[in-house]
Nucleic acid binder design. Structure first.
Length: 492
RNA sequence: GGGCCGUUAGCUCAACUAGGCAGAGCAGCUGACUCUUAAUCAGGAGGUUACAGGUUCGAUUCCUGUACGGCCCA
Protein backbone atom coordinates (compact mmCIF):
# COMPACT_ATOMS: atom_id res chain seq x y z
CA UNK A 1 0.00 0.00 0.00
CA UNK A 2 2.74 2.49 0.87
CA UNK A 3 5.70 0.40 -0.24
CA UNK A 4 7.34 3.39 -1.84
CA UNK A 5 7.00 5.68 1.16
CA UNK A 6 10.28 7.31 2.06
CA UNK A 7 9.90 6.70 5.79
CA UNK A 8 9.50 2.98 5.29
CA UNK A 9 12.38 2.84 2.84
CA UNK A 10 14.63 4.57 5.34
CA UNK A 11 13.66 2.19 8.11
CA UNK A 12 14.23 -0.84 5.90
CA UNK A 13 17.68 0.52 5.18
CA UNK A 14 18.35 0.90 8.91
CA UNK A 15 17.29 -2.70 9.45
CA UNK A 16 19.62 -3.79 6.67
CA UNK A 17 22.49 -1.77 8.14
CA UNK A 18 22.01 -3.56 11.48
CA UNK A 19 21.78 -6.95 9.79
CA UNK A 20 24.96 -6.18 7.88
CA UNK A 21 26.70 -5.73 11.24
CA UNK A 22 25.50 -9.18 12.28
CA UNK A 23 22.85 -7.80 14.61
CA UNK A 24 19.90 -10.17 14.82
CA UNK A 25 16.74 -8.29 13.92
CA UNK A 26 14.34 -10.81 15.47
CA UNK A 27 16.06 -12.71 18.29
CA UNK A 28 14.03 -14.56 20.94
CA UNK A 29 16.61 -15.38 23.58
CA UNK A 30 16.40 -12.28 25.79
CA UNK A 31 15.23 -13.24 29.26
CA UNK A 32 13.01 -10.72 31.02
CA UNK A 33 13.45 -10.63 34.80
CA UNK A 34 10.84 -7.96 35.55
CA UNK A 35 7.80 -6.55 33.87
CA UNK A 36 7.27 -2.79 34.20
CA UNK A 37 4.65 -3.34 36.87
CA UNK A 38 7.04 -5.51 38.91
CA UNK A 39 9.70 -2.82 38.93
CA UNK A 40 7.22 -0.11 39.89
CA UNK A 41 5.95 -2.28 42.76
CA UNK A 42 9.49 -2.99 43.89
CA UNK A 43 10.26 0.73 43.98
CA UNK A 44 7.06 1.52 45.88
CA UNK A 45 7.77 -1.19 48.44
CA UNK A 46 11.42 -0.21 48.98
CA UNK A 47 10.60 3.49 49.32
CA UNK A 48 13.92 5.19 50.29
CA UNK A 49 15.85 1.91 50.30
CA UNK A 50 15.93 1.06 46.58
CA UNK A 51 19.05 -0.94 45.83
CA UNK A 52 20.92 1.02 43.17
CA UNK A 53 23.04 -2.01 42.26
CA UNK A 54 20.17 -4.47 41.70
CA UNK A 55 19.96 -5.58 38.06
CA UNK A 56 16.71 -5.59 36.11
CA UNK A 57 16.22 -7.12 32.68
CA UNK A 58 13.25 -5.35 31.12
CA UNK A 59 11.75 -5.38 27.66
CA UNK A 60 9.15 -3.55 25.64
CA UNK A 61 8.34 -1.41 22.64
CA UNK A 62 9.99 1.99 22.30
CA UNK A 63 7.16 4.52 22.52
CA UNK A 64 9.19 7.73 22.76
CA UNK A 65 12.77 8.73 22.23
CA UNK A 66 14.67 11.89 23.19
CA UNK A 67 18.25 11.98 22.02
CA UNK A 68 21.00 14.32 23.29
CA UNK A 69 23.89 13.15 21.20
CA UNK A 70 25.75 10.91 23.62
CA UNK A 71 22.80 10.21 25.91
CA UNK A 72 19.20 9.31 25.20
CA UNK A 73 15.98 8.96 27.16
CA UNK A 74 13.40 6.51 25.92
CA UNK A 75 10.03 5.41 27.12
CA UNK A 76 9.24 1.78 26.50
CA UNK A 77 6.04 -0.12 27.14
CA UNK A 78 5.11 -3.68 27.95
CA UNK A 79 1.63 -4.97 28.69
CA UNK A 80 1.81 -3.77 32.29
CA UNK A 81 2.86 -0.19 31.68
CA UNK A 82 5.47 2.30 30.53
CA UNK A 83 8.90 2.92 31.96
CA UNK A 84 11.72 5.30 31.21
CA UNK A 85 15.23 4.20 30.39
CA UNK A 86 18.37 6.28 30.17
CA UNK A 87 20.97 5.14 27.69
CA UNK A 88 24.34 6.80 28.16
CA UNK A 89 27.43 6.27 26.09
CA UNK A 90 29.50 6.18 29.31
CA UNK A 91 27.50 3.25 30.65
CA UNK A 92 27.30 1.02 27.60
CA UNK A 93 30.28 1.01 25.31
CA UNK A 94 30.69 3.38 22.38
CA UNK A 95 30.06 0.72 19.74
CA UNK A 96 26.88 -0.37 21.45
CA UNK A 97 25.74 3.24 21.55
CA UNK A 98 26.39 3.64 17.84
CA UNK A 99 24.23 0.57 17.16
CA UNK A 100 21.52 1.90 19.44
CA UNK A 101 21.33 5.01 17.25
CA UNK A 102 19.78 2.74 14.60
CA UNK A 103 16.87 1.91 16.92
CA UNK A 104 13.56 3.68 16.32
CA UNK A 105 10.28 4.36 18.01
CA UNK A 106 8.24 1.20 17.49
CA UNK A 107 11.14 -1.24 17.86
CA UNK A 108 11.18 -3.78 20.67
CA UNK A 109 14.21 -3.71 22.93
CA UNK A 110 15.61 -5.53 25.94
CA UNK A 111 17.47 -3.44 28.50
CA UNK A 112 19.50 -4.64 31.45
CA UNK A 113 20.55 -2.17 34.14
CA UNK A 114 19.89 -0.49 37.49
CA UNK A 115 17.14 1.84 38.54
CA UNK A 116 17.77 5.41 39.65
CA UNK A 117 15.84 8.61 40.07
CA UNK A 118 16.32 11.45 37.61
CA UNK A 119 16.57 15.08 38.58
CA UNK A 120 12.81 15.40 38.05
CA UNK A 121 12.21 12.40 40.33
CA UNK A 122 11.18 9.85 37.71
CA UNK A 123 12.40 6.33 38.38
CA UNK A 124 14.45 5.29 35.38
CA UNK A 125 16.36 2.26 34.18
CA UNK A 126 20.01 3.12 33.59
CA UNK A 127 21.04 0.84 30.73
CA UNK A 128 24.14 -1.28 31.12
CA UNK A 129 23.20 -3.35 28.09
CA UNK A 130 20.63 -2.80 25.38
CA UNK A 131 19.52 -5.25 22.72
CA UNK A 132 17.23 -5.08 19.75
CA UNK A 133 14.42 -7.64 20.12
CA UNK A 134 12.40 -6.79 17.03
CA UNK A 135 12.89 -4.21 14.32
CA UNK A 136 9.76 -2.37 13.19
CA UNK A 137 10.00 -1.16 9.62
CA UNK A 138 6.79 0.84 9.64
CA UNK A 139 6.46 3.97 11.79
CA UNK A 140 3.82 4.21 14.51
CA UNK A 141 1.15 6.89 14.13
CA UNK A 142 1.89 10.28 15.58
CA UNK A 143 2.42 10.28 19.34
CA UNK A 144 0.33 13.27 20.32
CA UNK A 145 -2.83 13.00 18.23
CA UNK A 146 -2.76 9.22 18.05
CA UNK A 147 -4.71 7.48 15.32
CA UNK A 148 -8.04 9.12 14.49
CA UNK A 149 -9.15 7.82 11.11
CA UNK A 150 -11.98 5.43 12.08
CA UNK A 151 -11.47 3.18 9.09
CA UNK A 152 -7.81 2.73 9.90
CA UNK A 153 -8.60 2.25 13.59
CA UNK A 154 -10.88 -0.70 12.81
CA UNK A 155 -8.84 -2.27 10.03
CA UNK A 156 -5.55 -1.94 11.90
CA UNK A 157 -6.82 -2.28 15.44
CA UNK A 158 -3.32 -3.08 16.67
CA UNK A 159 -2.33 0.52 15.93
CA UNK A 160 -5.47 1.81 17.61
CA UNK A 161 -4.65 -0.23 20.72
CA UNK A 162 -1.06 0.97 20.75
CA UNK A 163 -1.81 4.64 20.30
CA UNK A 164 -5.13 5.17 22.08
CA UNK A 165 -5.12 4.12 25.74
CA UNK A 166 -8.88 4.58 26.08
CA UNK A 167 -9.42 1.95 23.37
CA UNK A 168 -7.20 -0.45 25.25
CA UNK A 169 -9.26 0.25 28.38
CA UNK A 170 -12.50 -0.57 26.58
CA UNK A 171 -11.30 -4.04 25.67
CA UNK A 172 -9.89 -4.70 29.11
CA UNK A 173 -13.27 -3.69 30.52
CA UNK A 174 -14.97 -5.98 28.04
CA UNK A 175 -12.91 -8.90 29.28
CA UNK A 176 -13.70 -7.96 32.88
CA UNK A 177 -17.42 -7.77 32.13
CA UNK A 178 -17.47 -11.25 30.62
CA UNK A 179 -15.43 -12.59 33.51
CA UNK A 180 -17.81 -11.01 36.04
CA UNK A 181 -20.87 -12.62 34.39
CA UNK A 182 -19.03 -15.94 34.39
CA UNK A 183 -18.04 -15.61 38.05
CA UNK A 184 -21.60 -14.75 39.05
CA UNK A 185 -23.06 -17.79 37.31
CA UNK A 186 -20.36 -20.28 38.34
CA UNK A 187 -20.89 -19.15 41.93
CA UNK A 188 -24.54 -20.17 41.57
CA UNK A 189 -23.83 -23.66 40.28
CA UNK A 190 -24.20 -23.02 36.55
CA UNK A 191 -22.17 -25.16 34.15
CA UNK A 192 -20.47 -23.42 31.24
CA UNK A 193 -20.92 -25.34 27.99
CA UNK A 194 -20.21 -25.06 24.25
CA UNK A 195 -22.93 -25.90 21.77
CA UNK A 196 -22.76 -26.01 17.97
CA UNK A 197 -22.09 -22.87 15.98
CA UNK A 198 -22.86 -24.85 12.81
CA UNK A 199 -26.40 -26.09 12.90
CA UNK A 200 -28.45 -28.06 10.37
CA UNK A 201 -31.56 -26.15 11.48
CA UNK A 202 -30.96 -22.61 12.72
CA UNK A 203 -33.23 -21.91 15.71
CA UNK A 204 -33.80 -19.89 18.82
CA UNK A 205 -34.41 -16.50 17.26
CA UNK A 206 -36.10 -14.67 14.44
CA UNK A 207 -33.26 -13.82 12.11
CA UNK A 208 -31.71 -14.58 8.76
CA UNK A 209 -28.86 -17.08 9.09
CA UNK A 210 -25.60 -17.41 7.17
CA UNK A 211 -25.48 -20.55 5.07
CA UNK A 212 -22.49 -22.75 4.59
CA UNK A 213 -21.79 -26.25 3.28
CA UNK A 214 -19.94 -29.24 4.64
CA UNK A 215 -18.28 -30.99 1.72
CA UNK A 216 -17.54 -34.36 3.33
CA UNK A 217 -21.00 -34.70 4.86
CA UNK A 218 -22.57 -33.25 1.73
CA UNK A 219 -24.83 -31.12 3.83
CA UNK A 220 -25.98 -27.57 4.13
CA UNK A 221 -25.30 -25.98 7.50
CA UNK A 222 -26.17 -22.65 9.08
CA UNK A 223 -24.16 -20.50 11.43
CA UNK A 224 -26.24 -20.30 14.54
CA UNK A 225 -28.49 -17.32 15.18
CA UNK A 226 -28.79 -18.41 18.84
CA UNK A 227 -27.72 -21.37 20.99
CA UNK A 228 -31.14 -21.67 22.66
CA UNK A 229 -32.47 -24.99 21.40
CA UNK A 230 -29.20 -26.81 22.14
CA UNK A 231 -28.93 -25.38 25.64
CA UNK A 232 -32.46 -26.56 26.39
CA UNK A 233 -31.55 -30.02 25.11
CA UNK A 234 -28.86 -29.96 27.80
CA UNK A 235 -31.45 -29.13 30.46
CA UNK A 236 -33.42 -32.11 29.20
CA UNK A 237 -30.18 -34.10 29.55
CA UNK A 238 -29.99 -33.27 33.24
CA UNK A 239 -27.77 -30.18 33.31
CA UNK A 240 -30.17 -28.10 35.39
CA UNK A 241 -28.15 -24.90 35.18
CA UNK A 242 -26.17 -24.16 32.04
CA UNK A 243 -24.84 -21.11 30.30
CA UNK A 244 -22.82 -20.25 27.23
CA UNK A 245 -21.00 -17.05 26.33
CA UNK A 246 -20.20 -17.06 22.68
CA UNK A 247 -20.82 -15.76 19.21
CA UNK A 248 -24.04 -15.86 17.24
CA UNK A 249 -24.37 -14.76 13.62
CA UNK A 250 -27.11 -12.90 11.83
CA UNK A 251 -27.11 -12.19 8.14
CA UNK A 252 -28.46 -8.68 8.39
CA UNK A 253 -27.41 -5.09 7.91
CA UNK A 254 -24.35 -3.64 9.60
CA UNK A 255 -24.84 -0.50 11.68
CA UNK A 256 -23.70 1.26 14.82
CA UNK A 257 -25.90 -1.24 16.69
CA UNK A 258 -25.38 -4.41 14.66
CA UNK A 259 -22.37 -6.51 13.74
CA UNK A 260 -23.00 -9.75 11.80
CA UNK A 261 -21.29 -11.70 14.56
CA UNK A 262 -21.99 -10.68 18.12
CA UNK A 263 -21.62 -12.13 21.59
CA UNK A 264 -24.48 -13.41 23.70
CA UNK A 265 -24.69 -14.89 27.13
CA UNK A 266 -27.49 -17.45 27.31
CA UNK A 267 -28.40 -19.15 30.54
CA UNK A 268 -31.03 -21.73 31.56
CA UNK A 269 -32.14 -22.65 35.03
CA UNK A 270 -34.46 -25.58 35.76
CA UNK A 271 -37.27 -25.14 38.31
CA UNK A 272 -37.13 -21.36 37.86
CA UNK A 273 -39.64 -18.99 36.28
CA UNK A 274 -39.24 -15.77 34.35
CA UNK A 275 -39.96 -13.99 37.66
CA UNK A 276 -36.99 -15.75 39.27
CA UNK A 277 -34.79 -14.79 36.36
CA UNK A 278 -35.81 -11.14 36.55
CA UNK A 279 -34.69 -11.07 40.18
CA UNK A 280 -31.46 -12.85 39.37
CA UNK A 281 -30.82 -10.58 36.39
CA UNK A 282 -31.15 -7.49 38.54
CA UNK A 283 -28.59 -8.90 40.96
CA UNK A 284 -26.30 -10.11 38.21
CA UNK A 285 -26.15 -6.76 36.39
CA UNK A 286 -25.50 -4.97 39.65
CA UNK A 287 -22.73 -7.41 40.48
CA UNK A 288 -21.09 -6.99 37.07
CA UNK A 289 -21.39 -3.20 37.17
CA UNK A 290 -19.81 -3.04 40.61
CA UNK A 291 -17.02 -5.47 39.66
CA UNK A 292 -16.13 -3.56 36.53
CA UNK A 293 -16.79 0.09 37.39
CA UNK A 294 -16.45 -0.04 41.16
CA UNK A 295 -19.66 1.95 41.45
CA UNK A 296 -23.31 1.63 40.55
CA UNK A 297 -23.98 4.53 38.26
CA UNK A 298 -22.56 5.56 34.95
CA UNK A 299 -23.23 7.95 32.12
CA UNK A 300 -24.29 6.66 28.75
CA UNK A 301 -24.22 9.32 26.05
CA UNK A 302 -26.59 12.01 27.37
CA UNK A 303 -28.11 9.90 30.14
CA UNK A 304 -26.97 9.10 33.62
CA UNK A 305 -28.04 5.65 34.72
CA UNK A 306 -28.35 4.49 38.29
CA UNK A 307 -28.31 0.72 38.70
CA UNK A 308 -29.37 0.84 42.35
CA UNK A 309 -32.90 2.17 41.81
CA UNK A 310 -35.36 -0.76 41.94
CA UNK A 311 -35.97 -1.80 38.35
CA UNK A 312 -39.32 -0.83 37.00
CA UNK A 313 -41.58 -3.52 35.56
CA UNK A 314 -44.33 -2.71 33.12
CA UNK A 315 -46.40 -4.66 30.68
CA UNK A 316 -45.94 -4.27 26.96
CA UNK A 317 -49.42 -2.78 26.67
CA UNK A 318 -48.90 -0.30 29.50
CA UNK A 319 -45.60 0.70 27.95
CA UNK A 320 -47.27 1.20 24.58
CA UNK A 321 -50.05 3.32 25.99
CA UNK A 322 -48.05 5.29 28.58
CA UNK A 323 -44.90 5.90 26.60
CA UNK A 324 -46.00 5.20 23.03
CA UNK A 325 -49.28 7.12 23.13
CA UNK A 326 -51.31 4.24 21.72
CA UNK A 327 -54.88 3.92 22.96
CA UNK A 328 -55.51 0.49 24.55
CA UNK A 329 -58.64 0.10 22.38
CA UNK A 330 -56.36 -0.08 19.35
CA UNK A 331 -54.32 -3.06 20.53
CA UNK A 332 -56.38 -5.71 18.77
CA UNK A 333 -57.36 -3.60 15.77
CA UNK A 334 -54.97 -4.19 12.93
CA UNK A 335 -56.30 -1.43 10.70
CA UNK A 336 -56.28 1.24 13.38
CA UNK A 337 -52.72 0.26 14.33
CA UNK A 338 -51.62 0.56 10.71
CA UNK A 339 -53.30 3.97 10.47
CA UNK A 340 -51.58 5.05 13.64
CA UNK A 341 -48.21 3.87 12.34
CA UNK A 342 -48.78 5.83 9.15
CA UNK A 343 -49.65 8.96 11.13
CA UNK A 344 -46.37 8.57 13.07
CA UNK A 345 -44.50 7.96 9.80
CA UNK A 346 -43.41 4.50 10.93
CA UNK A 347 -43.07 2.07 8.08
CA UNK A 348 -44.51 -1.37 8.83
CA UNK A 349 -43.04 -4.10 6.68
CA UNK A 350 -44.53 -7.13 8.41
CA UNK A 351 -48.24 -6.40 8.36
CA UNK A 352 -49.40 -9.97 8.88
CA UNK A 353 -49.85 -10.13 12.61
CA UNK A 354 -50.96 -7.60 15.19
CA UNK A 355 -48.11 -8.64 17.48
CA UNK A 356 -45.51 -7.73 14.89
CA UNK A 357 -47.06 -4.31 14.34
CA UNK A 358 -47.14 -3.65 18.08
CA UNK A 359 -43.49 -4.63 18.37
CA UNK A 360 -42.50 -2.29 15.59
CA UNK A 361 -44.33 0.58 17.27
CA UNK A 362 -42.67 -0.37 20.53
CA UNK A 363 -39.21 -0.34 18.96
CA UNK A 364 -39.65 3.15 17.58
CA UNK A 365 -41.84 4.89 20.17
CA UNK A 366 -41.09 3.21 23.49
CA UNK A 367 -37.65 1.60 23.48
CA UNK A 368 -35.63 4.84 23.25
CA UNK A 369 -37.46 6.12 26.34
CA UNK A 370 -36.50 3.20 28.57
CA UNK A 371 -33.33 4.73 30.02
CA UNK A 372 -33.26 3.45 33.60
CA UNK A 373 -33.19 -0.36 33.76
CA UNK A 374 -36.74 -1.52 32.99
CA UNK A 375 -38.34 -4.93 32.54
CA UNK A 376 -41.14 -5.15 30.03
CA UNK A 377 -43.41 -8.18 30.35
CA UNK A 378 -46.55 -9.57 28.74
CA UNK A 379 -45.39 -10.34 25.21
CA UNK A 380 -47.96 -11.95 22.90
CA UNK A 381 -47.67 -15.66 22.10
CA UNK A 382 -47.43 -15.12 18.34
CA UNK A 383 -44.06 -13.35 18.64
CA UNK A 384 -42.72 -15.65 21.36
CA UNK A 385 -42.84 -19.14 19.87
CA UNK A 386 -40.49 -20.73 22.43
CA UNK A 387 -42.00 -19.16 25.56
CA UNK A 388 -44.48 -20.64 27.99
CA UNK A 389 -47.99 -19.21 28.00
CA UNK A 390 -48.99 -17.13 30.98
CA UNK A 391 -51.01 -19.10 33.52
CA UNK A 392 -53.63 -16.33 33.64
CA UNK A 393 -53.85 -15.36 29.94
CA UNK A 394 -53.07 -17.90 27.25
CA UNK A 395 -52.54 -15.18 24.64
CA UNK A 396 -49.48 -13.80 26.33
CA UNK A 397 -46.28 -15.45 27.50
CA UNK A 398 -44.20 -15.47 30.66
CA UNK A 399 -41.57 -13.40 28.94
CA UNK A 400 -39.58 -10.28 29.79
CA UNK A 401 -37.19 -8.01 28.03
CA UNK A 402 -34.72 -5.79 29.83
CA UNK A 403 -34.01 -2.29 28.56
CA UNK A 404 -31.21 -0.01 29.72
CA UNK A 405 -30.16 3.25 28.11
CA UNK A 406 -32.91 2.98 25.50
CA UNK A 407 -31.69 -0.39 24.22
CA UNK A 408 -32.78 -3.97 24.59
CA UNK A 409 -30.14 -5.72 26.66
CA UNK A 410 -31.76 -9.02 27.61
CA UNK A 411 -34.67 -11.24 26.67
CA UNK A 412 -35.88 -14.11 28.80
CA UNK A 413 -38.83 -16.32 29.56
CA UNK A 414 -40.25 -19.33 31.26
CA UNK A 415 -39.58 -22.02 28.68
CA UNK A 416 -42.29 -23.77 26.76
CA UNK A 417 -41.90 -27.44 27.71
CA UNK A 418 -45.20 -28.80 26.35
CA UNK A 419 -44.20 -30.68 23.17
CA UNK A 420 -47.68 -30.51 21.68
CA UNK A 421 -47.92 -26.74 22.04
CA UNK A 422 -44.32 -26.37 20.84
CA UNK A 423 -45.07 -28.32 17.69
CA UNK A 424 -48.15 -26.19 17.03
CA UNK A 425 -46.10 -23.02 17.47
CA UNK A 426 -43.45 -24.30 15.07
CA UNK A 427 -46.17 -25.03 12.55
CA UNK A 428 -47.45 -21.45 12.88
CA UNK A 429 -43.93 -20.23 12.23
CA UNK A 430 -43.61 -22.45 9.19
CA UNK A 431 -46.85 -20.96 7.89
CA UNK A 432 -45.40 -17.47 8.39
CA UNK A 433 -42.28 -18.50 6.54
CA UNK A 434 -44.34 -19.83 3.68
CA UNK A 435 -46.23 -16.54 3.68
CA UNK A 436 -42.94 -14.76 3.06
CA UNK A 437 -41.50 -14.05 6.51
CA UNK A 438 -37.86 -14.99 6.00
CA UNK A 439 -37.08 -14.57 9.68
CA UNK A 440 -39.74 -16.99 10.91
CA UNK A 441 -38.52 -20.03 12.86
CA UNK A 442 -37.86 -23.35 11.14
CA UNK A 443 -39.57 -26.55 12.22
CA UNK A 444 -37.23 -28.52 14.45
CA UNK A 445 -38.72 -32.00 14.87
CA UNK A 446 -35.69 -33.23 16.75
CA UNK A 447 -36.22 -30.52 19.36
CA UNK A 448 -39.87 -31.49 19.73
CA UNK A 449 -38.78 -35.10 20.20
CA UNK A 450 -36.39 -33.96 22.92
CA UNK A 451 -39.26 -32.15 24.66
CA UNK A 452 -41.29 -35.36 24.51
CA UNK A 453 -38.69 -36.94 26.77
CA UNK A 454 -39.55 -34.19 29.25
CA UNK A 455 -37.94 -30.86 30.07
CA UNK A 456 -38.34 -29.74 33.68
CA UNK A 457 -39.99 -26.38 34.25
CA UNK A 458 -37.23 -24.03 33.23
CA UNK A 459 -36.53 -20.37 32.60
CA UNK A 460 -33.87 -19.00 30.29
CA UNK A 461 -32.43 -15.72 29.15
CA UNK A 462 -30.18 -14.23 26.53
CA UNK A 463 -28.03 -11.17 27.22
CA UNK A 464 -26.41 -9.03 24.55
CA UNK A 465 -22.86 -8.71 25.78
CA UNK A 466 -21.73 -6.18 23.17
CA UNK A 467 -24.58 -3.87 24.04
CA UNK A 468 -23.90 -4.06 27.74
CA UNK A 469 -20.22 -3.37 27.11
CA UNK A 470 -21.31 -0.32 25.10
CA UNK A 471 -23.26 0.91 28.13
CA UNK A 472 -20.43 0.48 30.60
CA UNK A 473 -17.85 2.02 28.26
CA UNK A 474 -20.11 4.79 26.97
CA UNK A 475 -19.56 3.64 23.37
CA UNK A 476 -21.91 5.05 20.74
CA UNK A 477 -21.10 2.37 18.18
CA UNK A 478 -20.85 -1.41 18.53
CA UNK A 479 -17.63 -1.17 16.49
CA UNK A 480 -15.98 0.47 19.48
CA UNK A 481 -16.48 -2.66 21.60
CA UNK A 482 -15.68 -5.37 19.02
CA UNK A 483 -11.97 -5.75 18.33
CA UNK A 484 -12.31 -6.42 14.63
CA UNK A 485 -15.73 -5.24 13.47
CA UNK A 486 -16.92 -6.44 10.09
CA UNK A 487 -16.04 -4.02 7.27
CA UNK A 488 -16.15 -4.30 3.52
CA UNK A 489 -13.02 -5.45 1.76
CA UNK A 490 -10.63 -2.50 1.62
CA UNK A 491 -10.73 -0.66 -1.68
CA UNK A 492 -7.73 0.89 -3.42
C1' G B 1 -31.36 -0.02 0.34
C1' G B 2 -31.91 5.83 0.81
C1' G B 3 -29.95 10.78 2.43
C1' C B 4 -25.93 13.86 4.10
C1' C B 5 -20.62 14.23 4.92
C1' G B 6 -15.67 12.59 4.17
C1' U B 7 -10.93 10.37 1.66
C1' U B 8 -4.62 15.59 0.67
C1' A B 9 2.98 13.38 3.13
C1' G B 10 4.00 7.55 7.69
C1' C B 11 0.31 10.25 11.46
C1' U B 12 -2.87 14.80 12.71
C1' C B 13 -4.69 18.59 9.79
C1' A B 14 -4.59 23.37 6.23
C1' A B 15 -5.12 25.08 1.23
C1' C B 16 -12.41 29.49 1.94
C1' U B 17 -17.70 31.61 -0.60
C1' A B 18 -12.08 32.87 -5.57
C1' G B 19 -10.27 27.23 -10.12
C1' G B 20 -3.87 29.88 -10.62
C1' C B 21 3.47 26.76 -8.36
C1' A B 22 -0.21 21.69 -2.51
C1' G B 23 1.34 23.86 3.12
C1' A B 24 2.15 23.16 8.54
C1' G B 25 2.98 20.32 13.13
C1' C B 26 4.66 15.50 14.65
C1' A B 27 7.57 11.32 12.90
C1' G B 28 11.81 10.38 9.73
C1' C B 29 16.87 12.33 7.56
C1' U B 30 21.67 15.56 8.33
C1' G B 31 24.24 18.47 12.09
C1' A B 32 24.72 20.38 17.48
C1' C B 33 23.63 18.84 22.42
C1' U B 34 25.34 13.47 28.52
C1' C B 35 18.83 14.65 33.34
C1' U B 36 14.82 14.77 29.00
C1' U B 37 9.63 13.71 29.08
C1' A B 38 4.81 16.62 23.06
C1' A B 39 13.10 17.94 24.72
C1' U B 40 15.46 22.19 22.17
C1' C B 41 18.20 24.65 18.03
C1' A B 42 19.77 24.73 12.71
C1' G B 43 19.30 22.56 7.83
C1' G B 44 17.26 19.67 4.21
C1' A B 45 13.80 15.93 2.36
C1' G B 46 9.07 13.84 1.82
C1' G B 47 2.77 14.21 -2.62
C1' U B 48 -0.25 9.72 -8.75
C1' U B 49 -4.56 15.33 -3.53
C1' A B 50 -8.79 7.44 -2.93
C1' C B 51 -9.76 5.70 -8.17
C1' A B 52 -11.81 6.55 -13.36
C1' G B 53 -13.71 10.08 -16.49
C1' G B 54 -15.63 15.17 -17.80
C1' U B 55 -15.59 20.77 -18.04
C1' U B 56 -11.42 24.32 -18.42
C1' C B 57 -5.67 27.56 -21.07
C1' G B 58 -5.29 25.52 -16.06
C1' A B 59 -8.84 21.12 -11.19
C1' U B 60 -7.19 19.27 -4.29
C1' U B 61 -11.07 22.93 -5.58
C1' C B 62 -16.57 22.47 -10.30
C1' C B 63 -19.46 18.05 -12.59
C1' U B 64 -20.37 12.52 -13.31
C1' G B 65 -19.33 7.63 -11.89
C1' U B 66 -16.78 3.88 -8.75
C1' A B 67 -14.47 2.09 -4.12
C1' C B 68 -14.02 2.57 1.02
C1' G B 69 -15.46 4.98 5.58
C1' G B 70 -18.57 8.10 9.14
C1' C B 71 -23.39 9.85 10.78
C1' C B 72 -28.67 9.60 10.17
C1' C B 73 -32.95 6.97 8.20
C1' A B 74 -35.02 2.11 6.56
Amino acid sequence: MDETSEVIRQRREKAKALADQNIELYPNDFKVSHMVEDVKKYIDQQAEAVDSTAMFAMAGRIMGLRCFGKATFIHFADYTGQFQAYIKQDEIDKEAYELFKHFDVGDFIGITGNVFQTRTGEWTLLAKEIRLLCKAVRPLPEKFHGLRDPEKRYRQRYLDLLMNPNVRDIFIKRANIIQAFRDFLLERGFLEVDTPMMQPIPGGAEATPFKTFHDALGMELFLRIAPELYLKRLVIGGFDRVFEINRSFRNEGVSTQHNPEFTMLELYQAYATHEDLMSMTEGMFRFVTRQVLGEMHFTYQENSIDMTVPWRRLTLKNALSELGGIEPSMFDDRDRLLDFARSEEIEITKTGQVGKILMKLFDVLVEPKLIEPTFVVGYPVEISPLARRSNSDSNITERFELFIGGREIANGFSELNDPVDQKRRFLDQVANREAGDKEAHYMDEDYVTALEYGMPPTAGEGIGIDRFVMLLTNAASIREVILFPQLKKAGH
